[in-house]
Design a protein around this nucleic acid. Sequence first.
DNA 1: TCCATAACGAAACGTATCGTTTCGATTGGA
DNA 2: TCCAATCGAAACGATACGTTTCGTTATGGA
Lengths: 199, 199
Amino acid sequence: MNATDRSAPRRASIGARRNPASQAAILAAARAVLAEEGYAGFSIDAVSRRAGAGKPTIYRWWKNKAELLIEVYAAEKAMVKAAATGGLADDLALYTAALWDFWRDTPSGRTFRALVAEAQNDAAALAALRDKFLPERLCDVRALFAAAVARGEIGLDEVEMRLGLYVGFNWYYVLTDQLDAGRAAIPAAMRLVAAPLPG
Amino acid sequence: MNATDRSAPRRASIGARRNPASQAAILAAARAVLAEEGYAGFSIDAVSRRAGAGKPTIYRWWKNKAELLIEVYAAEKAMVKAAATGGLADDLALYTAALWDFWRDTPSGRTFRALVAEAQNDAAALAALRDKFLPERLCDVRALFAAAVARGEIGLDEVEMRLGLYVGFNWYYVLTDQLDAGRAAIPAAMRLVAAPLPG
DNA sequence: TCCATAACGAAACGTATCGTTTCGATTGGA
DNA sequence: TCCAATCGAAACGATACGTTTCGTTATGGA
């Protein structure tokens, strides 16, 4: 039983308004639980215990588990930077390698996997993943594609299809926990994603 | 409460051996629960009630939820046939369209999504998905790639990378419940998956 | 200055799930 | 004949969910 590692700091009420320290403590606890136990151990009860916070406090800040997961992911400062070397394939390969490092070196990979799993449980979580989380996360990649369109490398009407291939490639390897094994395939795969349409 | 829709057939013991009728009833019940409620409602208790079977009987046949899920998927007669028109892109496009129909028209899409979600919960489920379920399901697609290698369309050392792109493309659309919206992108995406490596 | 207001953590609620165990009844094979 | 293994039913203890209640705390408006 190491659920009580953090002796509860016992943040008392600061009056008739929500305590930001509670929110921060809950986010940190959620990140820690995900990092140490993965999605299997990620329960509201566990986060509550770890944060020394009451469950009502959690539900006061987040509607459900999925929303908490999304914010945990977002709180992890996205160190994934979009490169711009001039070729879409190289840009994507650099970006993807950085993303996979990010997934491997932070709790974010596990958070992401938890989010996808939660989305299969709960329709609201799926909607949040598809319509809110994903568009935000794909912003940088979309910019790379847009630049390639501007350079005439690919057609504008091909962006969504290429994006589907790109996103799926990432999802497959992270969801099957094969980021290390699949790493070598990144450059060639990105060359295909960026390749001119044959025919 | 429609959990007791099926009035329990009450299959008594048939002696000192397991009753195949129980296995069949459990599989059918599992399929029905998945079809009607999705992964959220897919609990051992629910399947047990629906099948009119005791939970110990379920655990006598299957080690855990993931194994039951895998067999539910396998029991759905795979109507996805591999085509062979002579070109990898066309073969993949035909196969993928059939697979997506299969996912849409049977409980198999939901079963698959449940399996992926379960794999994020349970390490054993992930191992079963990656090392047992996936290789079996990818057999036909691998044959298409192998034929393309034999024809000289693609290199043998590119198969795994292309397979990663192919599988991920499918996963992304089914896991985000966008099979209908993504359908139009199949042919072009498969042309890329089958395209010669540029550079 | 006073006090209604709202958040706080703790605890317990009822419901649900898991995987296991116990039970009496059933039936084939040794 | 009787042992053995299965059957469905029921209950177990543990855990999780999301909610409610409780006594405490301190702010901010009257």
